[in-house]
Design a protein around this nucleic acid. Structure first.
Lengths: 333, 333
DNA sequence: TTGAAAGCGCTAACAG
DNA sequence: CTGTTAGCGCTTTCAA
């Protein structure tokens, strides 16, 4: 046979402690109304047996799973930051997180389906790519909180993307930059708003004729490609705002390799303040999404809905803030 | 009340189809011995109600969870690659993956405990930091497969670390390099073997007196620090082997910023072949761990143990291979 | 081929 | 404070 030891059940513990199952149940859950002596004996019996409650049975009986499903893209640096913070946010909520990763070979549909089978009570989806109607349909079955994407028919927690880019442009303009470019995120969630924020801020600073948007993307490679395009121009920009940190990392790399000094010759601003930006050797000036607030809101919203509180789907917009590091400086002239 | 729809149960489907619960159960599991007509009616009823089996109840009854628990460090690039591959490896195994992340605020103990509560049938642990005795104790309770770390008392799937570094040194020596340094991984899993492999290979090439090991680590920042140390030496090496890709990325960055051309002046070799190494703008020569093989072995080993097949704990050592990209070249003189 | 009944490990009423 | 009972949604005998 296997080396698998049969796991002790609540009944085993009860037998060993010489009490009823109910008492053991109460003790294990830390409920009140058990004499200290009994509590003590039960604890000892449980420890001796190495008893661990079976969450499946527990949840089956109580009709709930106390599980919050999280769908995330495991290769996205920012999602990783969000998941990390979600664990913290959920810590004292009475709910556990059930992770389901989207990988190149495992799509969102699959990731979601497995969470549904686990009877998660709500879904928190990070930057989902699922079409809005499908998302809305899903939201009729269980509470769905969408993070980092704007969509109707579900609860949304997102960053004020346009405002973030405004802050970036304000910062650069304040440093004297005029030729400020934007490497965008294409069709990625939030990209349209960030483009708009950039454009509006440029106009607000009277830099309308310097508006310059280049196709980028979410990845390092896409950033690198865009940066090369920029370098080959007759009059390259003195500052670049980039869709996200990951993409900005690619941009930085190309600049440095080309011998362009950052920030002396070109300033670069990212977006997200993901762990990438904080790396000492990158030290990227960026627009920080307020991850603790966003994740706290996401968990709170999910629970509200589970409790049947919220009625209409709401969108919470969280303000980002500028974090100045080493990739921005005064314009050289 | 909440917008939560009560999920239909097997009983609901049975009622609607006008058959017994047993039949529905058989149909849902695709078992034989049900007339086509009945099968058809049950299918329709299930679809009409949007029925989805409750995995918890199913597993409770059958006494199994068919779950493989995975403990991983969400911030480690290589773990992310492994998790991605594990999903693929487990796809047709009849088991599902249950992910539990280790974060700065959620340690391995906590990550493991939640998996145990879910009654995972086996644990796959990626580069665990848990002390060997604790790991061995855990392995007496359920099958534990350790990936990317060598430890007694559990099943181990790991890369031939020393051999990997030998390949790196062979490659560099073949390019004419003599002053080859090694930035190590300190106490990280595998670091000792990689150090040893480096040292042995250097001696094998008659380069014993050039052996030069510098304290590094697993992260970009640690690599950057080590690289700076190296640059400040009177006679810097012409080639550097680095503990892993992540650390090598930090090394590269410092070199490039210092105006050192790679590979013209200094060659760099990483380890892992994580997605970082493949980024076009990094294009790091590296020692590739055979991720598909390792993950396939890990899943297979876990299942063997669950089935009670394997007896003694075994260590499977997978051979890595050199992937030549753009960070290595002939020595300049 | 189909159905009835038992029970997985646990919690929630309720009674003592 | 403690024990008894019933049953969560499902699978699994066992009979029909």
């Amino acid at each position: 046979m296997a080396n698998r030891t049969v796991r002790p059940t609540l009944t085993d513990v009860a037998a060993r402690a010489g009490v009823s199952k109910s008492l053991v149940s109460l003790v294990m859950r830390g409920e009140q109304g058990v004499s200290p002596a009994t509590r003590q004996r039960v604890r000892e019996a449980a420890d001796a047996l190495g008893y661990q409650p079976d969450s499946r049975a527990r949840l089956l009986r109580s009709g709930r799973s106390r599980l919050l499903g999280v769908v995330f893209g495991i290769e996205h640096a920012f999602h990783v930051d969000l998941v990390t913070a979600l664990y913290t946010a959920a810590r004292d909520s009475g709910y556990e997180l059930a992770l389901s990763a989207v990988t190149p070979e495992r799509d969102e549909t699959e990731a979601t389906a497995s969470l549904l089978q686990d009877r998660c009570e709500a879904l928190i989806m990070l930057g989902p790519r699922t079409p809005a109607p499908a998302l809305a349909r899903l939201a009729t079955r269980l509470p769905v909180v969408v993070l980092a994407r704007d969509v109707r028919g579900a609860d949304v927690i997102r960053t004020a993307d346009a405002d973030g880019l405004r802050q970036a442009v304000d910062h650069l303009a304040g440093l004297g930059h005029r030729r400020i470019a934007h490497i965008d995120g294409g069709r990625a969630p939030g990209a349209a708003d960030r483009r708009r924020g950039y454009r509006e801020a440029m106009h607000a600073h009277g830099l309308g004729r310097h508006v310059h948007i280049i196709a980028g993307g979410l990845t390092e490679d896409e950033g690198a490609t865009a940066a090369r395009t920029l370098l080959h121009q007759s009059r390259p920009p003195t500052a670049i705002t980039v869709f996200n940190d990951r993409c900005a990392t690619g941009v930085l790399d190309v600049l440095v390799r080309a011998g362009t000094r950052v920030p002396e010759q070109v300033s670069v601003v990212g977006f997200d303040d993901s762990h990438l930006a904080r790396l000492a050797h990158i030290s990227l000036t960026t627009i920080a999404q307020d991850v603790p607030t966003m994740t706290r809101l996401a968990v709170a919203r999910a629970i509200e809905r589970i409790d049947g509180l919220a009625v209409a789907h709401r969108a919470s917009v969280v303000t980002p803030h500028l974090v100045i590091r080493s990739t921005t400086g005064p314009v050289a002239d």
